[in-house]
């Protein structure tokens, strides 16, 4: 039992936010904050440049965005549950919650990709107008992050299965946790800057 308690302590120590690797990853996320803030700026600047093409109100669908938002928010909670169980050394539960998080993230990304495919099929591709270039650039960059988050979840589940909850695995899970919550944070800005004001224009018109 004492070795178990020691294992748990080393897992918790590795997952600390102020280890060198975890702080370094946080600095990377801060650089991502700057990238996204510039993409948001470009979007706001170009959001009315329709070039005679479809407007924001024409292409945005509130119901789909709401489902995506709920999936991502719920996935933040489920990833949190994975981290709670990591700190308790509950290997199987960590895997289950990571699995649930993956399903929610995959639902989000699948929904987003089908929205993109639908827009391109309708002729509202990123080449149509400044508005659509900025839209695909911003939302696509977020979606790409979600994609790599999903790949990362799969890698971590495989590592847990092969090696168990070792300190290096716990350290990586702590970084994936930062990454995943950060993506939800960016999404709040996306639906508040892009989708809700866009849909609102159609309501007023």
């Amino acid at each position: 039992m004492s070795s178990n308690a020691h294992d748990l302590n080393s897992i918790r120590a590795a997952a600390r936010a102020d280890t060198e690797v975890n702080f370094g990853f946080w600095i990377y996320l801060m650089s991502d904050v700057i990238i996204f803030s510039m993409l948001f700026l470009v979007y706001v600047d170009l959001s009315q440049r329709y070039a005679g093409g479809p407007t924001a109100a024409d292409v945005f669908e509130l119901r789909g965005v709401f489902l995506e938002t709920m999936a991502l928010l719920l996935s933040s909670l489920t990833f949190g549950m994975a981290m709670v169980n990591l700190h308790q050394g509950q290997k199987e539960r960590v895997v289950i919650w990571l699995g649930v998080t993956f399903v929610l993230g995959a639902f989000f990304l699948g929904h987003e990709l089908s929205e993109f495919a639908h827009l391109i099929h309708e002729g509202a591709s990123f080449t149509r107008s400044g508005f659509l270039s900025a839209f695909f650039g911003l939302v696509g960059t977020h979606g790409a992050h979600v994609f790599f988050g999903l790949v990362w979840i799969v890698v971590m589940v495989v590592q847990i299965k092969l090696r168990g909850l070792t300190p290096p695995v716990a350290s990586r899970l702590a970084r994936l946790s930062l990454f995943w919550h950060f993506l939800d944070l960016v999404w709040i800005c996306v639906f508040s800057t892009v989708y809700l004001p866009g849909v609102l224009q159609g309501v007023a018109a």
Binding site: N9, A15, R16, V84
Partner: peptide, 17 residues
């Protein structure tokens, strides 16, 4: 020197959610 970090709680995540 193994210093365990602050353990997150289910209650905290549910409050945030």
């Amino acid at each position: 020197d193994v210093t365990p970090g602050h353990a997150p709680t289910a209650r905290g995540y549910i409050t945030g959610f």
